[in-house]
Design a protein around this nucleic acid. Structure first.
Lengths: 236, 236
DNA sequence: CGCCACGTGATTGTCGACAATATTTAATCG
DNA sequence: CGATTAAATATTGTCGACAATCACGTGGCG
């Protein structure tokens, strides 16, 4: 487990709202890969790093647990959650139905602002695809989805998806450079954009297309995972 | 906020696993309506009731928060979550797509045991409907759904649905006596059962029917809520 | 050599006390 | 009398200490 010296200094640790600040700091640390999967987050270590007592640390663990980033095992400790191929397989179908629903609900109460934001994101996806800028393509891709999710207006749905997407995002840390089939991906999003813009789109069709788009991602993701594993094995 | 004397005595409070025990006790207390919505759960009160220190209490709050039963507001306190009509409206679409997916996945890897369990539950639903035993009809209805949810094999999906269903169940405390249209409800479940049993069911059709069944419940539920509100207003 | 008992260090679990913040009540002024 | 401020009370936030449990290594025994 690496230290968090850089983050530590950036944060004001006057003793109020320690749990909030600490939760944010640790969330970032996990998302950025400073805390690696399987790592035990020992209270004493964090206590030393942040010079705070264990009470807020323990509470922060529960907050991170809610976000699905760590696993609190009573009388054993708190560990950064590992993601197995099985988790991936379980994740995508769930997320696909939820994002499908979000798309449908977003279409139902769509307003100009998010629509324009999506178009801008889509334009940047196009540019990134042409330049084969994988990292940026991903960033815009994520943004595109986030916009219509936020626009769906269903707070429960928004929160669920935020959590789910964050969980997988963290694993994507290294994933941001994986080679997406830009052309195919872009065409799909172009089609989705078209459906959002049109006045007489069948909401169920929009939902189905978004859902399928995400369901199909599971294969690519698992393939990538496999590749990484082999890479790891060969360098040993 | 009522006291928990009865529960208190039933629980062994030797200081190990206090958080687990306390979380369970408080979960039940909320589900059973001992803690009412909007109630502030003050640490001192619970401390006195259970004769334990505040540390495990505070951690338990975070556990309950994860289950969606309370709301932790920093520097204000912890409150039993209120459920608004809007929450209901947001809840049902989400749950419907998830249970639809669960049904589809359950059908894909269905085995005899859960199938039989569902048939038994369905049979008891029939009896309860004939006797107009609302409470028992509800119980069996819930069980019926739980069986195929558990059978879907997707642990993420199972956990999400368990949480969602629990949140609404708590509000159902009084709801167990609301008058369901037994005949219509029973017929739907008979149809679902038939689709689960058949070897050549279209999984998407099964999914759609389950989804629709739940989507339609939102109206009844809101109507019930409204009725309760009026009742409350009139008795004042 | 393998395996179990046991002790030792590491880690989590709980506690009571004090500090900081929020809420209520009381007092003051216009 | 109402509004504003100030004191008091209630409640949450954090801390350091001690207790219980777990993980690991060591030594004895078959």
């Amino acid at each position: 487990m690496k230290t968090l010296t850089s983050k530590l200094k950036a944060i004001d640790f006057r003793p109020t709202g320690l749990v909030e600040k600490l939760s944010e700091a640790m969330t970032e640390a996990i998302l950025e890969g400073i805390f690696k999967e399987g790592d035990q987050l020992t209270e004493l270590d964090l206590q030393k790093q942040f010079s705070i007592s264990r009470s807020p640390i323990r509470e922060s663990f529960r907050v991170l647990e809610k976000r699905g980033l760590v696993e609190v095992i009573p009388r054993k400790g708190t560990f950064v959650k590992r993601i197995s191929p099985r988790d991936i397989e379980e994740h995508f179908p769930v997320r696909s139905v939820l994002e499908g629903l979000a798309a449908k609900q977003a279409y139902a109460n769509m307003s100009p602002a998010p629509l324009e934001a999506m178009e801008r994101a889509l334009a940047r996806m196009k540019t990134a695809a042409e330049n084969e800028d994988t990292k940026n393509y991903w960033k815009q891709h994520i943004l595109f989805h986030e916009i219509f999710i936020d626009a769906c207006g269903n707070q429960l749905l928004i929160n669920l998806l935020k959590t789910l997407r964050m969980q997988i995002m963290w694993y994507r840390l290294s994933y941001q450079y994986y080679k997406e089939d830009f052309k195919s991906s872009y065409r799909t999003h172009e089609k989705i954009m078209g459906l959002f813009k049109s006045k007489n789109t069948d909401p169920d069709r929009l939902e189905a297309i978004v859902r399928t788009h995400i369901e199909e991602a599971v294969g690519k993701f698992l393939g990538y995972l496999d590749e990484q594993e082999k890479l790891k094995a060969s360098t040993k």
